[in-house]
Each structure stands twice: as structure tokens, then as C-alpha cells.
Design a binder for these strands. Structure first.
Lengths: 145, 145
DNA sequence: AATCAATAGTTAGTAAACCAATTTGTGCTC
DNA sequence: GAGCACAAATTGGTTTACTAACTATTGATT
């Protein structure tokens, strides 16, 4: 390996790490009896912080595409956690809201998710966080041309 | 945000970055006329470097699970790039080999993949690579208890 | 030699990602 | 106000991930 960028390692490491995180989250959700997938949680989280958000905006914020958001919302609606309300000013749009049950789910799950975030970061420092953000942003940026 | 680990940012950043990498790879594959998905490429790559590997070992090396490997191999076999040969010493196992067409595909695609790796790493330094590996391994390790 | 747990791989079902195509609605222009 | 490009959301098809259940084979124990 003459240079790091020559190795397969960095794609692989990112892939492995995100898979691990998702696995840990999902397993913990199941243990706690939370009937949600990780991606369903991600949407709930964003709707909770942006009541009345549109599906397209939700897609942007989560870096999911429109069909994916449609289908995850279908499941959340079926579970009674979320509702679509017709937008007043644009009849193509829906405004997405948490139902009371969804709000309760959000509040119950949030502390657990926060705990897992802390566990993952462990003893890494603020300086490490700086490195991390800089490196990830840089890779992203290098691919956005 | 009192502490980095309190923010949603690091899960999200890893997720976003790997998605970006996969998108760039896939788009480039399509432009070049390579009829493979990224994950199919990952298997080809590992088989090329480990002729006769078993499916289970392939699964370990790629952090994919057994059913996923089965199905991706099914597709690669159908495309005529790979073949399963019965193992001599254990009739439960297959040994996986590239067919000539698969070898050709591997050799054609490898330089392109290397180029994209280099592009992604860009001007980041060897020191950055050290930080990167340490941080990713640390997160992984924090979740492996 | 017979049993039985463990291993390699497959199959089935659900969820999510991506692309392409479609439907409905908006707003601009002529 | 008719036509047209554009936008929001949905639908369909293929691929991958995860779990669980299943088949066939191996190897260890008794």
C-alpha cells in the first residue's frame, strides 16, 4: 500500500462502521420493544423537530429519495404514529404531523438513542470530532464536482 | 450542542458519506458501461484476490450475511462472471472462481475504482488517514461489547 | 454404529435504496 | 385562457440487508 488512498480500506471502513451502528440501534430497539426500524426512527425524529414538514423536505433532510420517504411514511401512518394533512396552499403537498402516539414514541425512544450515540463516541475527544467532520466533509466534497 | 456525542451529526455524516461514495461509484460504472452494481463489484474484487474462497468466508470479508452473498453470487453466475465449484473435501461448501469473463471485468474495472478512491481521498494527508482509522475503529469497538 | 449439535448454503418475507415512469397540480408565457 | 415546463408525490421493478426457517453434510460423543 503505497498511499492510503490506494487501499480499499477507507470505503470499507465507513461501510462497516455504519452497518455496525445500524445493527446496534436496531437490536436495542428490539430489546426495548420499540416496534420501529432505524429508518422509521429517523423520519419520526425529523418530523418531531419539524412539525408540518413536506415529504420532499423530509427527503432532503434525511438524504433519502422521494419514493423511499413515501413508503416509510406509509408504514408509519399504518402504525398510527404519523398523519398526512393536505397542504392548504399547494394541493400537491402533504404536511406531515406526529399523532399523539407518535409523539409518545418519540419521547420514549429519544433518551435511548442519545445513550447509544454517547456509547459510540465513547472517549473520543472534541478534537477528534473536529478531525472527523473535516475528513468526512472533505471526502463528500471531493465527490461533488 | 453541549458535546459532539449529543448531536445526531456523526451517525448522519457517516451515513451521508457512504451513500455519496456508493452513488459516485455506481454512476461511474454506468457511464463506463460496466453492468455491475457496487456490491457485485465488491464480491468480484474479493474473489479475484482469493480464488476458490468459500461463500462463508466471502461473507465475513465483506461484512455481508450468507443469504446476501448467495443472491449476489446467483446474479454474477447468471452474468457468466463467476462459477461455483463443489468443494472436494466438504460437500456442503462451494469454492468460488472467476470465469475468464469475470477476470476481464475485474481488470477493466479496477483502474477506474482506484481512480475514484484517489479522487475521494483528495488532498487529505497520511496523518488524516491515521485519525480516520483510529476514530472509525474506536466507534466500532465501542459498540462491540 | 447411532445420535446429535454445529456448519454451509438456500429459501422466504419484509424493509429500504435506486431508477424510471406516471399522476396531479402549479405557475409562466404566449 | 390554452399550452407547457416544472414540482410533489406515487407506483413498479430490481437489488441488497436482515431474520427466521430449512436442507444437507460434517464431526464429535456416547
Amino acid at each position: 500500500m503505497t498511499h492510503p488512498s490506494d487501499s480499499r480500506a477507507y470505503f470499507f471502513k465507513i461501510d462497516t462502521t455504519i452497518k455496525k451502528i445500524r445493527n446496534v440501534l436496531q437490536k436495542r430497539f428490539n430489546e426495548e420493544g420499540f416496534d420501529l426500524t432505524v429508518d422509521q426512527w429517523v423520519l419520526i425524529d425529523h418530523v418531531a423537530r419539524n412539525e408540518g414538514i413536506s415529504q420532499n423536505t423530509l427527503a432532503e433532510l434525511t438524504t433519502k429519495d422521494a419514493p423511499t420517504v413515501t413508503r416509510i411514511l406509509d408504514l408509519l401512518v399504518k402504525k398510527g404514529l404519523v398523519e398526512r394533512r393536505m397542504s392548504e396552499e399547494d394541493r400537491r403537498k402533504f404536511n406531515i404531523y406526529l399523532k399523539p402516539e407518535g409523539q409518545k414514541t418519540f419521547e420514549t425512544m429519544l433518551p435511548v438513542v442519545k445513550e447509544i450515540r454517547r456509547q459510540g463516541w465513547g472517549e473520543l475527544s472534541d478534537e477528534d470530532y473536529g478531525h472527523f467532520v473535516r475528513i468526512m466533509d472533505s471526502i463528500y466534497q471531493n465527490f461533488s464536482d
